[in-house]
Structure formats: C-alpha cells, structure tokens
Design a protein around this nucleic acid. Structure first.
Lengths: 339, 339
DNA sequence: CAAAGTGTTGTTAGCGGTAACATTACCACA
DNA sequence: TGTGGTAATGTTACCGCTAACAACACTTTG
C-alpha cells in the first residue's frame, strides 16, 4: 500500500495546470506568471515533490554522476583519494558512484560495465591491468576517463599519478646514504604499484652493489603483518639493518615490533614506509616515509574530469605528481652531508 | 563527433530482428531460436553493447543502487563502515552511491533529495540531527532507510548502532578502577556521538565524586591535534593523571606527545581511546580503547536493507551492537582484581 | 484597425528498455 | 483437412521529464 512518489503530473493536477508549467516553474520560474507561482510552490511542498532524474538520464544520457572504480576500500590510501574526489565533485553537484573489484580483472570488467550502465558522466579508475574487453569499453565509452595512481602506466587514457619506482629507488638510496646496507623490502598485496616499487628498490640496491631481498605476501598489509614480517625476517636475514616497507602500516607495525624486542631504531635497524600518513609525523621516532599526494590526486582527477565534461579538449595526457622523501628519524643512523 | 553508445535497436537492425528479440536473448536466451543466438551474440560483441539502466529505473523506479549518506569521509571510522556496506552490497549486484554533508543539516537535506532523485532502492544514513523536511523525506521515501552509529537515537527509523554514552561511561569507570582520578576528556568534531560520549564520561566521573573536564574543538581529530591538546592540558590541568579521547587518533597523538616529553604512560598519565583501530593492538604500550564494530555495523545495515528491499516486513527496529572495553597497557597503572 | 510582437500555457514526441498482448508459422492429431 | 497448440517473433504502450513547437490572449505599432 506504499504510495508512489508524487510526479510533476500529480503536482500539476492539484494546481490545475499541465506538468509542463510546473516543470518550468522549477527550472525557470520567471517564465511562469506571478499568479501561479505561489500555488505551484505550495503544491510542491504539500506533496513533498522530489525530482526524478531517471527521465533526464534516459533522454540526455547524462547522469551528473561520476564513477569511481578502485581495487579495494580496505586501503587507507584509497580512502584519501576518495575524499579528494568528493571534495571537488560534491560542490559541483556531481554524485559519486563507488565500486571496487578486489584486484580481480574479471570483476573490474564487470564493474566498468555496471558503472557505464548507469550512464556515469565520467570515470576515475585506478591503474591496473585491464582485460582487453575492459580496455575497449573504456576507450569507446564516449566519456572522460582518468586512470590514477601510477604515472608510468602505459594505458592510452588520461593519467594522473606518481612515479612509484622512482620514489622507491630514491628512498632506498636515502637509506643507503644513511648507512643502511642489508635492507629488506616488505611487500604485501602484490599489485602493479607494489611491483613498481620493488623494481625501484632493486635498482637502487644493485646500483650500490648491495643484495636485494623481498618479503612478500598476497594478502593485505596491516600493522600486525608488519610485526609478523619483522619476527620472521630476523631469522631469515640475520644481518638485516634496514627495512623498507611498501606502506606505512607495515613500517609502523615493524617498528613497534622492534621496540618490543628491544631493537633500536634506527641504530640497529632503519625503517622506512611509504605514503606519509599523518601518524608518521607524530610518532616516536618520526617515521621516514615517501609522502605521496593522495588526496591531491583525487582532487586533480576530479577537476580534470569536470573540465572534460564541460567540453574541454580531451587529448590524452599524463600528469606526474611530485612525491617527497621524508627522511624521518627512523633511518637517521648516521648524519650525512647533503648529496 | 563522438558516437553514441549502441542501443538494443542498433544491435537489432544489424541482425535484422526487432529490439525485443535482442532484449529476450539477453535476459532469456532459451526463448530465442538457435539460429539467431550466434548472430545476436556476434552483433552484441561487435558493437560493444552495454546495457542502459536508465529506462528500467524510469519504468520500475528501481535502480539497484543504495545511497550512503555520511557526515564526512575524513574519518577513518566511516571508511570502515563503507567497507562493510560494500562487502555485502557488491556481491548482490547493488551499487553504492556515496554522499557526505560535512556535518551541515542543510547539506544533508539536499543530499537526501539528490540520492532519492536517483531512485536509490534504499538509504543508509548516519545518525544526526535532521531538518524537519529531511525527516519527512526519509519517512515518505517509500524505501527502506537505516540510521547507523547510535543505538540511542530517537529517530523513528530503523537503527543499528552502539550505545556511545554507555561505552564512554564504562571506559571512564575502567580508568578510575585502575587508579586514575583527574581524567580529562579530549573531544573533537562535536557531533551527536561525541556529545553522547561526553555525557557518559561525565556520569562516571560524577558517580565517583570526581570532577569532569573536557577539552574540545569543532575541528576534526588527528594525531597532531592529540599532541597539541596534550601540550595545552598539562598547564591547564597540572594534576592531570588520565586522558580519555573521543577516538584513537587523538589518543595516539597524545601518547606520542607524552613519550616525547618523558611522561610515562600509564604511570604518570593513563590514556584511553575510542574505536579500537588495528594500530591500538600493535603499539607500545598497547592502547586502551573501546572496540566498536564499525565494519560489522555497515555489513548488518546492508543486510537488513537487502531483506527489506526483498519485501520483508519493515517494522522499525533498533539493533544495539556490542562494544568491547579493551583494557590496554596504557591505563594499567595499578593491578585490580576483576570487579 | 490589421499586422506583428510578447508573454503565458499547452501539445507532442522521444529518450531505451520491457511487460503484455498480438501475430505468425508450423506441426500434430482427430 | 481443419482445428488447436506451441514456439518464435513482432507490436504497442508506458515509465517521467523536457525540447521544440503550437496556440492563445493581449499589447503595441504603423
């Protein structure tokens, strides 16, 4: 017995005009005579009319919604990206349609189709290995698409991201400069970005005549995983004197585990993280980390999309954002002069 | 010159049938003759047909999307709630439409209308003070609505949440039991839940003949804010020997600040947080905190909505989830026997 | 005073699917 | 051989809104 939502027709009948007049009142009130305005407004309020976007989406294929497709929501990083996106879209009256695909290519393909089926006006998608069909859908979608996270992606889409391998290389070099030699990389969730970082780490190690070693798992990172890795690595690599983690969670977990075992950071083991979450700047010792512009990435992506939606030229572009090596206390084993 | 997305009509023309046949092929392939199946499938692939939900949404007023309306995305807590929601909705083929309103009642009202204008099939909304109009919209929406976060809400909607004031009262009592007396409450972002917690804290303090004191700010909480509060509070309340924070961020920030100042935790100052993020279980000392079922709250809300959508009776109900007092090292000043 | 505005409201058609009903072709059986 | 059944496909109408055009009642103007 639930009553349906009132339509323009319902409002119009109550006032004694056609729905067209009511429609005009809502969108261009000055085209409606004074005598009707009050009556219509009254009927609108009275019935609790809420516009229905479906017809408009159907006839114009514009939804005023933007699809955001990410591998996972478990990750703090993506939460911040989303925030950046929403910060920009919301004041512009755009709705965010969120989806994730749990790092599965097939699911990603499905999600893309789903988002498109809602007629999203644009798509923000995390860099990843797309299926052929997914790639084709994105190219033929006829809407702006931006791939975020990795500036070195070879995708033909618009790209906004950072150079993960360069960042990892630089941080590894920084650790080496500070006297760390036997640095082990802690990796989790072996996605494209993690692989990039590992590559950068290995480059730096090799360039310095050092041996690279990676501890890895497919599962997601967490504080407790960092602690677990630390336990294991101590027996696997007894000479270890440095740990570079694929993100801050692992690093902080490892750091706490060191504290519990009485290992001094950075004297016995240097520890560095990745992403530069707020906590890295508050903790003791301050965590060395690569500060990445996560929220900014979301903001820029959203801004770019809005421009494209509003008809600005859509030549595929690559925007590489800067990261920052934050040389926190956790790796400052020896003082060095600026190189 | 961008080509429009192909429609069923386009596919049908290529095959030489009507769109109805193609529509049938997609939904009930066994009603289409063998001879056509291959041809249609081919045309579908060839044109890269992607279904369009708009017509269906229009004619059935069902979108297979669920609106999620939260005050903010800055908050880690909400990120986890969202994850819980998505965990349930995504496998069921429901899309999440995310919106936030920055703690503004007017914006909240607008967002509700927007989500409804997309014909969402259900709505999950964070407990908050709604405007009258918002309240009315929610009640008349004709779709399941669940309010989450606070089980003591007086709203007439379905509710899933925890009892924030009871939780705060209990944690305060636990700190008192462990020998803390001059406990100051650190509050941020003075929303309904924070006010509830403060009330619970005050009850416990008063019940024990102690004086309540609250440090507060309208801005969002963060690690650095916790550190800042700690600095200030030391001069404002020289006798302070305990801090109860409205969330873990503040608590951890304060704890680090103590470590930097050489204050011992819990001997000099006991510190407790709220929510029980993963890090609380990894850090040194282990943080006392109220563990709340954030992700579960999202999951349950989503499950309940799905049931309602599928026609199950929709009598307004209140589900109060359990929290857990985690008596971490950070408040264990004196050993006590179990009360 | 007719022609040409002007301001206001109405009418029609269409967006892309699908439910419901109609049609057609073919076959089986009395 | 005609009747009825069935499987495959087609036709029509509708969901709610708005662009485009039409209609009407007044004014204004030459």
């Amino acid at each position: 017995m639930k009553k349906k939502r009132p339509t323009l027709q319902d409002v119009a009948e109550r006032v004694g005009v056609t729905k067209m007049t009511v429609s005009r009142f809502i969108r261009k009130p000055d085209q409606v005579s004074d005598s009707l305005r009050d009556k219509i407004q009254h009927a609108l309020d009275d019935l609790g009319y809420i516009p229905n976007r479906a017809p408009d989406i159907l006839s114009k294929s514009k939804s005023h919604a933007v699809g955001v497709l990410l591998p996972s929501l478990t990750n703090q990083v993506f939460a911040e990206v989303i925030r950046g996106i929403e910060t920009v879209l919301e004041p512009e009256g755009y709705q965010t349609m969120l989806a994730h695909f749990g790092y599965s290519q097939e699911l990603e393909e499905q999600r893309i189709a789903t988002l498109l089926s809602y007629n999203v006006d644009a798509l923000i998608i995390s860099e990843s290995q797309h299926t052929l069909k997914a790639q084709k859908m994105l190219e033929n979608a006829g809407i702006p698409v931006i791939e975020i996270m990795d500036s070195t992606s070879t995708s033909p889409l618009n790209i906004i991201g950072i150079n993960n391998s360069a960042a990892a290389r630089e941080m590894t070099q920084t650790m080496i400069n500070h006297g760390h030699r036997n640095i082990v990389y802690f990796a989790a969730r072996m996605d494209e970005r993690t692989l990039q970082k590992i590559a950068g780490y290995k480059q730096a190690m090799t360039a310095n005549g050092l041996t690279a070693a990676v501890k890895e798992t497919q599962s997601a990172s967490s504080f407790t995983l960092g602690a677990k890795f630390l336990e294991e690595v101590l027996s696997e690599y007894p000479n270890i004197d440095g740990i570079f983690c694929t993100n801050d969670d692992l690093a902080i977990g490892a750091l706490y585990a060191c504290q519990k075992k009485g290992l001094r950071v950075p004297e016995d083991i240097g520890i560095a993280g990745f992403h530069g979450h707020d906590i890295a700047r508050a903790m003791v010792p301050l965590l060395a980390t690569v500060v990445t512009p996560r929220e900014e990435m979301g903001r820029l992506a959203a801004q770019q999309l809005l421009k494209n939606i509003h008809g600005e030229a859509r030549h595929a572009s690559v925007i590489e954002l800067a990261y920052e090596i934050e040389c926190g206390e956790s790796i400052r084993k020896i003082q060095i002069k600026k190189n």
